[in-house]
Design a protein around this nucleic acid. Structure first.
Lengths: 205, 205
DNA sequence: GGCGAGTCTATACTTTAGTATAGGTGACTA
DNA sequence: TAGTCACCTATACTAAAGTATAGACTCGCC
């Protein structure tokens, strides 16, 4: 039966998760309230199969705690857990050698699946994590655009000239210029490059 | 024991994977050589737990095959498998309702872990897939650029005009034009927007 | 029916982008 | 030392982008 060390400074969160993993799945779970205690518990013994670190916890200091834990225990699987971190933090953690990133929005069943997955030697990062809310903002900025302006913007996003866009949309070049001008004003940018960049950044095309 | 239907038009690939899953893991594996055969096999019976579709296979037509399979079998777990598809295809597949994306670069052990993960009700997309090799190409294209050209490109990537770039780099506008012209030629693109888009796509700035 | 929004086009214009050619500097190197 | 290369600048040009104004058409809406 795998040994898991769960480090989180919120007593309630830590203890309930630990209890769930122990009773429902039969995992052997140790707990710690901060990074120092967790490191102390692991000192010497290699018995821990998976270390779960809360991202916001005394001693972590961003990803430094993760890096230190990884350095001191190269063979132990380490997962970062957080309720607030965004996707950038998650991917950074993965590139720093974490075996998994566990958002606290996970269901209990998914948490168990993720843990099993990591214990099997895989690396876990939920693919759709942190992609929900940006949509809202995106819609707002671009919802002012008319159908034609949107089509024009789409062509801008592959770097086409007004002439090429005119050919593709089967309209005159002047008309394209009009659409471009209006679209720039609506997006609040000053040239086509900025418009393309903005659209690309919000993953519209 | 879960029933898996593996559809791939490469006989060797299909049969070896099927044999591995059957003998090593004890899965019950059915096979098909194209989408039509797979759909035929699934007609009526709801016994299939996981359908694995090759992305390049007769009848697939991009993600259309996936969408059709999802529509006809809303409750069946479906994974897309590919040896060539890029990350965009993978994420598109996920947003179209796929339960997983399986690159053929996976090891056999990881394939099994992924399948188990999906069968447990999770959605699987390897987080680091499609981020390794683009680096190499990237370096190649941009390594021809001189220091100044690179700085110029960086400013292009925030949509600045030649005049603004000249001010920022403390050089004359004509010089900026020279850098831009040379940089466009080296990158093989025809205007500044395309250059900015290309640089952004390779995550240079 | 009138009204507004979106669309298309035209003419005319200014500004910016991009090309071409030429010449000068300093640094590094065969 | 001569040659090469990155860099800077100048002049001069063409092409493309962007602005401004005005007229015309369609469609849905009050």
């Amino acid at each position: 039966m795998p040994n898991i060390l769960l480090a989180d400074d919120h007593d309630l969160v830590r203890d309930t998760i630990a209890a769930y993993l122990e009773t429902v799945e039969g995992f052997n779970v140790l707990t710690a309230a901060n990074l120092a205690d967790a490191m102390e518990l692991m000192r010497g013994l290699d018995a821990i199969d998976l270390l779960i670190l809360d991202y916001n916890m005394p001693g972590m200091n961003g990803l430094e705690g993760l890096i230190r834990a990884r350095r001191d225990h190269p063979k132990c699987k380490i997962a970062l857990m957080s309720g607030v971190a965004n996707r950038d933090v998650a991917t950074s953690a993965m590139s720093q050698g974490a075996n998994g990133f566990i958002p606290k929005s996970l269901t209990a069943a998914s948490l168990v699946n993720a843990i099993k997955f990591i214990l099997a030697g895989e690396r876990y990062l939920p693919f759709d994590f942190g992609t929900a809310e940006p949509e809202a903002k995106t819609e707002g900025v671009f919802s002012d655009l008319s159908a034609r302006e949107l089509q024009t913007l789409e062509q801008l996003c592959i770097g086409l000239s007004n002439k090429e866009i005119a050919r593709n949309l089967d309209i005159k070049e002047v008309t394209v210029k009009l659409h471009v001008k209006n679209l720039l004003a609506k997006l609040g940018v000053s040239n086509r490059t900025q418009a393309a960049l903005m659209a690309k950044e919000r993953h519209l095309f």
